[in-house]
Design a protein around this nucleic acid. Structure first.
Lengths: 162, 162
DNA sequence: GAACTATGAATGAACG
DNA sequence: CGTTCATTCATAGTTC
């Protein structure tokens, strides 16, 4: 299979070069936490001297960088404070994925997808949906929920409650 | 045990289904740039026929859509001096999401493997259900939706509900 | 070469 | 409304 087919999906992602990475990290470390759009353009121009890059790439890079740093910090942050181990009072409903707010490395996600296939699965993939539709799968076929309650999350500012 | 009522909500972020997306895009393209609150309700009602959705979701979707379009325009407009984007990051083309039928079977595969158990599965997308069936999954585990807890709209700044 | 990892890209939700 | 955050998906790159 896949032989003779046409290469339609050429969605390769940009891969920063070493030089670009150095510059990016330097800027990021300098303190320009949130570079303005103008700044983005400057950086893009600068980096374009060392390889193909677009403003979107720079923007995404900073966004990811920041999110990643935060995640790392959060993940590491658990050894401070006193150790208060108190398991929950049983009641393991569905093993909700609403785990602790400070423990959600992306690795867990991978685990659920790749090797570990022994826990709750929630299907919410727009991509899959689209693809299925293209595959000729009808939208409303079997599982037609009768009533969808309006469920809205109210995570005000504390992100994950608790 | 003895614990009544739980938030079985396994969905933290609404994911529009293909049908919902189509409708949304159509409306957005129709010209109803900023749907009124009344319009929002109508759209929500319409979309709720194809999956769980709330007015907030619709509102956010339109806002995001608008912002995204604008940002793209700004990016293009800014590039007047030197232009070196020849990669896929720009995404300036609106070409249809014509994904090849043999795209990435990974997601589908994980789906088929992931739900081979008995755990609760949250089906947001009817399409997924079809696919699962296609993969050889019995519908016994499918329509197991219990009840979507009705959560009040927080609307800090008064978003949708008023 | 399949599994795992790292990270860029996409998007929904929240804030100001 | 524009910007930013947070979560998830997809793929390049690495390991075994």
């Amino acid at each position: 299979m896949t032989s003779g087919g046409h290469k339609i999906s050429a969605r390769q992602r940009w891969t920063p070069t070493a030089v670009q990475l150095q510059i990016l990290e330097r800027i990021f470390d300098e303190g320009t936490g949130t570079p303005s759009k103008q700044k983005i353009k400057e950086i893009t121009s600068e980096l374009s001297q060392h390889g193909p890059i677009s403003e979107t790439n720079v923007y995404n890079w900073f966004q990811n960088r920041r999110a990643r740093s935060k995640r790392k910090q959060v993940m590491v942050a658990s050894s401070s404070n006193n150790n208060n181990n108190h398991n929950n009072a049983g009641e393991s409903e569905v093993e909700t994925e609403v785990e602790s707010p400070k423990t959600k490395p992306e690795n867990l996600l991978l685990v659920s997808e790749g090797q570990g296939q022994h826990h709750d699965v929630c299907f919410q993939n727009p991509e899959i949906t689209s693809q299925l539709h293209f595959l000729g799968v009808g939208d409303d076929h079997m599982c037609q929920l009768k009533e969808w309650g309006e469920a809205a999350f109210m995570t005000k500012h504390g992100r994950v409650s608790e």
